[in-house]
């Protein structure tokens, strides 16, 4: 079996098997949050892991996806599913427009430009209160899936439904990302990650491929934001904020940004961590900061790759 198919199989088995160990319904909520974060983080694997570019503003695209689901049904009469698509279209268009000039920048300069983009989006969402409801947020219409299932005679709780739905979208997203990895585009991205100059001399259109990675990752973030909005039925500008952008990048890098599974593992750890850290009460932030520092120092490739290396090393002995 190819590693790609193994990854997908492991992922699917985990998603399906986990609920058998859930002590209470609350765990479905955490599971769904993990999957929704994992979708955005999978997009960052394409941007950071494959193409070697950074972004400190991807939460902005999550904000666009989220508010599309809040606003499009009311103002344009679109059903929520179409609103998700509208959100991705808007995010992709914006990423393409802004990506063209700013992807020429490198390292920290690209960091500050994407940071600025994210902050601008969250500022608009917060300030244009007559449209967006302002800092306290806005209600999001029901996806309607639960009602549909009920009419078909299948009663399912909101927690379980969103667990299944977000899990499915995450696996789909991972499948697409893994396919991209093996495609000519994926190979080109990895080549320019290694060295842009070398890639260019080999005839790779560096600018175009970077832009593609940026647009695709923006679409992932947008879908993630849409699902979050539809699940919570309420969305606030926090979804587009700087701390959410940082959280996404941290999940990806902490878990291992080189692989989809690693990044999803990072999303799992960082989503569950605040729930575990409640036992530390007021030391919560200090512990979170320490975890970020220590993992980056001692496991620079991320948690999952380092863990796998350890395991393989033991097998070899």
């Amino acid at each position: 079996m190819k590693p790609k198919h193994l990854s997908l199989l492991v992922l699917t088995l985990l998603v399906v098997a986990a609920p058998f160990f859930f002590p209470s319904g609350f765990y479905y909520r955490i599971g769904a949050l993990i999957f929704i974060n994992a979708i955005a983080v999978t997009g960052l694997v394409i941007l950071i892991g494959y193409a070697g570019q950074i972004s400190l503003g991807h939460a902005g695209f999550a904000g666009i996806g989220a508010y599309a689901c809040a606003l499009a049904p009311e103002h344009l009469g679109l059903p929520p599913v179409a609103a998700i698509l509208l959100g991705t279209a808007l995010s992709a268009a914006l990423a393409w427009l802004v990506g063209k000039p700013i992807l020429r920048l490198h390292g920290y300069y690209l960091g500050v430009a994407t940071l600025g983009l994210g902050i601008l989006i969250s500022m608009v969402l917060s300030n244009e209160a007559q449209w967006t409801g302002g800092p306290d947020g806005i209600a999001v219409p029901d996806l309607g899936l639960r009602g549909l299932l009920r009419d078909l005679g299948w009663r399912i709780g909101a927690g379980e439904l969103w667990y299944g739905l977000a899990g499915t979208v995450m696996i789909l997203g991972a499948w697409l990302a893994l396919n991209l990895f093996d495609s000519p585009t994926g190979r080109a991205l990895r080549a320019l990650h290694g060295s842009e100059v070398a890639a260019r001399t080999m005839g790779i259109d560096v600018a175009r491929h970077k832009l593609h990675a940026f647009v695709v990752s923006a679409v992932y973030a947008s879908v993630s934001g849409s699902l979050l909005a539809l699940m919570n039925r309420l969305i606030t500008p926090d979804v587009a904020g700087f701390m959410h952008s940082v959280q996404m990048v941290t999940m990806a890098v902490l878990g291992g940004v080189g692989s989809v599974l690693g990044a999803i593992f990072g999303a799992t750890i960082l989503t569950a961590l605040p729930q575990l850290l409640t036992v530390f009460h007021q030391y919560e932030h200090m512990v979170l900061g320490l975890v970020m520092i220590l993992v980056m120092i001692f496991l620079p490739d991320g948690l999952l790759p380092s863990l796998m290396k350890r395991l393989r090393g033991r097998d070899g002995e």
């Binding site: 609350f26 306290d136 947020g137 919570n232 309420l234 606030t236 926090d238």
Partner: peptide
């Protein structure tokens, strides 16, 4: 102060901690 966290913790209070009532929500969001 993050509504997404508040919703998660509220779910935890109801489903996991089985509280009789919830006090909170410092902000309107």
């Amino acid at each position: 102060g993050d509504p997404n966290n508040a919703r998660t913790f509220a779910t935890r209070l109801v489903e996991h901690d089985e509280v009789v009532a919830i006090i909170g929500g410092t902000t309107t969001g």
